[in-house]
Amino acid sequence: MQLFTASLQAEWMKTRRSAAWWLIISGGLLIPLILLIGRFYNHELIAAENAAPVVWIKLYSRSWTYMGTLLLPMGVILVTSLVAQVEVRNNTWKQLHSAPLPFRTIFLSKLTVILTLLFMGFVLFNLAVFGMITLPAIFYKDVSFPSAPFPFTEILIGNAKFMLDMLPIASLQFLLSLQFRNFLLPIGIGFGLYVASMIGMNWKYGYMLPYIYSSYEFSGKTTIGDTLINFHWLPLVYSLLFTGISFILYLTKKDKT
């Protein structure tokens, strides 16, 4: 455990001043900021919107629609590849693997840092959406804070679903980034798979595509094909499968430089 903590601290330090942080910050703020500008532009609608009992769900859903279909998959592809490939870009695999750390510790700490960063992106996005809904009340006297109670449970479940949806992307990108010495290759493959998933959205078996799930949330379907099984089992199975394969490939790699 002591080694894992040490390794985790070291991995966290590597993200300092990295592009991954800028992606997390800009990715978390972009959609709420655009929607906030939109609200300010149509400020005459804000008072009625804030007074409506569904204001939270309505605006959270609107934010997630843009986020889930485009920004989230792209962001996950980029952040995962950037963090996992820090060793390739700096030619540091050989130094890290010459350090007294078990390989499984290195693998787990890298994965933990990626998931923590993505989680922080989710937190930032939620806070930004909250701000987008509540801030106009400070600027306009005729606009009041939303009076409807904050649907904490629904929003938490919604976030958990999107978190689960992006896990196959994160785990497969992690696998690709650990396998290739080329930085652009995992990103290229990731974008290719995302585009393929978008094309396969209307395909009968589209739910099988691992990069589809955050968009699939808006398809109106909740089950796997004609079965009664919730489709969220699929991203869970995919992410466990990809992580397992990635771990085995990493451990058995002949050349660890």
Partner: peptide, 20 residues
């Protein structure tokens, strides 16, 4: 093998954690 986006001290601090 060094992390180019970090300073010399940060590079060493990182390995100081690993080697404890």
């Amino acid at each position: 093998s060094i992390y180019l986006h970090l300073t010399a001290r940060e590079n060493l601090l990182l390995y100081q954690r690993i080697y404890q």
